[in-house]
Design a protein around this nucleic acid. Sequence first.
DNA 1: AATTGATTCAACCGCCGAACT
DNA 2: AAGTTCGGCGGTTGAATCAAT
Length: 252
Amino acid sequence: MVRAPCCEKMGLKKGPWSPEEDQILVSYIHQHGHGNWRALPKQAGLLRCGKSCRLRWTNYLRPDIKRGNFTKQEEDTIITLHQCLGNRWSAIAARLPGRTDNEIKNVWHTHLKKKLKNDQSSQDSKSHPIVSIPKCDTKVLENSNLDKNVVTSPQQCSSEMSSVTDSSLEKTVIKNEEMDYSSEYFPQIDESFWSEELSREDADRQTTDEKIQFQFPKGVESSEKDSRIDDSMDFWYNLFIRAGDMPDLPEF
DNA sequence: AATTGATTCAACCGCCGAACT
DNA sequence: AAGTTCGGCGGTTGAATCAAT
């Protein structure tokens, strides 16, 4: 099935938004909300496609958008999350309140990528990784059904992060040589987990309520699942929150 | 002051998956 | 079950701005 581009319909305006258009969109959404983006421009009297309206609202007009330069802490947070999540800008944005995926993507491409490259080259002689997580058997990953772009288990994250060096993040995020980080041990977490902002308490409650979908290898006793889930949750909690020293993150 | 090349960032495009018909 | 609609995502573009000459 091939779909025509949404703006192909004649008469729809493209390009930068005028202050008048912004005003119309904002006042309409304040009065009626945005139940149906496709129908919105017609009802609001805008010569725009719904997609353009949604983008303008989510990236610029939303009242909770934080404008201005990124702080050092925000930049560090992006770098850290990018090392683990890759180009999953929306997932990164979900952990930076007031920042949009588009903004983060722009900052990454214009500032952080260069910064990381410079820092990395200056650190090459020292060559010590910021993360000291034991690597797992890479064959396990290669043979798994994991989406290469989706981090669903600690060992996948660690195998990517352990090769990264950055002076601004010169710290050990987590180190526990005794832990078993193999995918045989850790359950995989349902991807929807990453799109939600959870507090530690929420995460614990959801774990016990089995609202987060954990996938275990076959043959794992149900009595053992709880402790494995606990270890897994501790891993992510330590990685992103405690050891990351990221006070600007939403309150977990 | 004029020109040119580099950088920034708002906006668009195409694709995908979920929901709906 | 198949087709359609819709919202959301990541990649890319190009106009505006800045810096260097």
